[in-house]
Design a protein around this nucleic acid. Structure first.
Length: 576
RNA sequence: GCGCCUGUAGCUCAGUUGGAUAGAGCAACGGACUUCUAAUCCGUAGGUCGGGCGUUCGAAUCGCCCCAGGCGCGCCA
């Protein structure tokens, strides 16, 4: 209903302009920063000033004098140097409140959106626990998916699991070393080894729960063990000079540890309010013919060249600014890039019309290549990358240096235990993706009480307290209907209704810009409108009719707050 | 060297398809609990929007040139 009101207003402005000057205009309506400038504002007079050769102020006055306002609006005022400010009518605002009280989801209906959307995020390699950079992606990605879904988009989320390739081999080797270490051997990690404690923990769990595999491992190794065992030696033993039995065991160990890593990742993400629809495995993709088919297709389109024994993708035909890159190495192995192109082609084959990836800045160089490849395959404008900037974790005023391989990372799980999911999610989501983020751990630990997220949650809890208080004194809040809002006339009451009416615009902006942070700021503003109202006005008072009206108003605000917090994956506590 | 991101109040950040006195939270200072939750409210103070030039009726926003910080430029993933 809120956008219907807008559409009617646009039509009325067009008619006014046409009747005044016989011109066609395309007025744009925006929500002013400040409620004092109305509910919707247009800068049309500025845009017409040149064409009509008259000052914007006069143009604004004339349109305001001529326009026939739709019922949703009570007033239009030419203000400032030439703005047209429109104000909702109280009747319309009461209508909004009543509808929100009954069915808050009405605020999400922001139009229909064609096609199937997919957003891929996190997609960290399953070689260890998730770090804080993944945490940011998880918070932002899941919030965005929630918003889009709520706004009526057909959207699915996906995590791409790179469960194949060198890193997984290294992981398996490091894991085997940890098992050996557990049995008393001295070990030494190679350059690319994963030294994190988590693999030592996994080794303990493995030997406890998999006696058969453990036995098999030591039986195979027994004659060959001695001195310090290195990554290099393990790699050679299993994968270079290995017989079938060794290879089978290595595969089994690889699968075991990868499954453990994936299970841990999923568990942590779920604890972080991030439920991803699909975990798509690279091994699944490799098992089929998809990579070969994709490469064949690229060859047919003439996008590949052979050089130095490797097969390269020649980007020059679609994007001269991009550099050629290798698809098939001279040893015949596919590169990560080749598999990734096949993966993205597969997404489209699975029926998605719009695919978005949320990538870290370290993958920036990959964007142009992937787009060039997609273009070559004939998929134009269906693939986009949202770049999410780095997270710096600060502790004691110093940057915490992190590296997955050295094992020196602050994990998402630790962050959750430290500051809680609600605070972490809000901190990660309440900023633009492109903004670098300094996450001050000391601050987050020490000052959770003064965190903005608590301010929002407190508004919700406060309302719950009021409603409970009213319920105990025998009032039935749920029965409030449109008529009950008639008692609301105070500007501060109407300001709350006006704020609620902004939500569809906020969600629409989030969806349009693929950015969830606007919702965080909106909720802050809504809470900021409520708390002063509460401090100034008695809600449950002697006047029964007014009490009913204000309780209903509170209920609508609670619904709106809880709706927004839900989308951000943040809890709406009933008491604090 | 080339490319991308960032630079706004003491701190962390919004605002950047050009528009109204540049906003919020925290920190600082002064007030408010006999009341439905003081995790709150009211008030004060705080700015060369990194710098310069340009386009415009109008620039934090657009263009060019600098400065500073981060990241990327592999037959790695």
């Amino acid at each position: 209903m809120i956008f219907e009101a807008r559409d009617e207003l646009v039509k009325a402005i067009k008619e006014a302009a046409h009747s005044l000057w016989k011109i066609d205009v395309k007025p744009e309506l925006t929500i002013p920063d400040n409620l004092q400038f109305g509910d919707l504002s247009s800068n049309l007079p500025f845009q017409l000033a040149r064409e009509l050769r008259r000052p914007p102020k006069e143009i604004a006055s004339e349109i305001a004098g001529r326009i026939e306002l739709p019922a949703a609006f009570s007033t239009v005022r030419p203000e400032g140097a030439g703005f047209l400010n429109f104000y909702y009518s109280d009747v319309f605002l009461r209508e909004v409140l009543a509808q929100v009280a009954a069915e808050p989801r009405i605020l999400g209906r922001i139009g229909s959106h064609k096609g199937k959307y997919q957003i891929e995020y996190v997609s960290a390699n399953p070689t260890g626990p998730l770090n804080v950079v993944s945490a940011r992606a998880a918070a932002v990605g899941s919030s965005l998916v929630n918003i889009l879904r709520f706004a009526g988009y057909d959207v699915r989320s996906e995590y791409y699991l790179n469960d194949a390739g060198n890193q997984i081999k290294e992981l398996t080797v490091s894991f085997i070393l940890r098992v050996l270490e557990l049995k008393g051997f001295s070990i030494e990690f190679g350059m690319d080894g994963y030294r994190g404690d988590y693999l030592a923990d996994e080794a303990v769990f493995f030997t406890d729960t998999e006696p058969e595999k453990t036995g098999q491992l030591f039986k195979l190794l027994s004659d060959n063990l001695g001195g310090t065992i290195t990554s290099e030696w393990v790699t050679g033993f299993f994968t270079i000079t290995g017989n079938e039995e060794k290879k089978r065991l290595f595969s089994a160990l690889r699968e075991w540890i990868v499954d453990r890593m994936i299970a841990g990742i999923r568990e942590t993400l779920e604890a972080f309010g991030t439920n991803i629809d699909e975990y798509y495995r690279e091994t699944r993709l490799r098992a089929g013919k998809k990579v070969d088919e994709t490469l064949e297709l690229l060859r047919k389109k003439g996008g590949t060249i052979i050089q130095d024994g490797a097969e390269w993708f020649d980007t020059s035909k679609v994007d001269p600014n991009e550099q050629a890159f290798v698809l098939v190495k001279s040893d015949g192995e596919w590169t990560y890039g080749a598999v990734d192109i096949a993966y993205h082609r597969d997404k489209i084959a699975r029926g998605f019309d719009h695919i978005y990836d949320i990538w870290g800045p370290d993958h920036h160089g990959h964007i142009g290549r992937m787009k060039a490849a997609m273009k070559t395959l004939g998929f134009c404008g269906v693939f986009d990358v949202l770049t999410l900037q780095q997270v710096n974790l600060l502790e004691g005023g110093e940057k915490v240096k992190m590296s997955k391989r050295s094992g020196n990372i602050v994990t998402l799980a630790e962050l959750l235990a430290d500051v809680g999911a609600d605070v972490a999610r809000f901190f990660f989501t309440a900023r633009r993706m492109e903004a670098h983020l300094d996450f001050d751990l000391d601050l987050a630990r020490k000052e959770t009480d003064e965190n903005p997220v608590f301010y929002i949650q407190y508004a919700h809890a406060r309302i719950c307290g009021i409603l409970e208080h009213a319920r105990i004194s025998g009032r039935d809040v749920r029965s409030a209907g449109k008529r009950d809002f008639a008692m609301l006339v105070h500007p501060e009451e109407m300001a709350l209704a006006r704020k609620i009416a902004q939500l569809p615009y906020v969600l629409s902006k989030c969806a349009l810009e693929m950015s969830a942070h606007y919702l965080c700021f909106y909720l802050l503003e809504l809470a900021q409108t409520f708390h002063p109202f509460y401090a100034k006005h008695r809600i449950v008072g002697p006047d029964e009719e007014l009490t009913t009206a204000r309780l209903a108003l509170c209920h609508s605000i609670k619904q709106t707050l809880s709706l927004g917090l839900d989308m951000l994956g943040i809890s709406s506590p009933e008491n604090m």
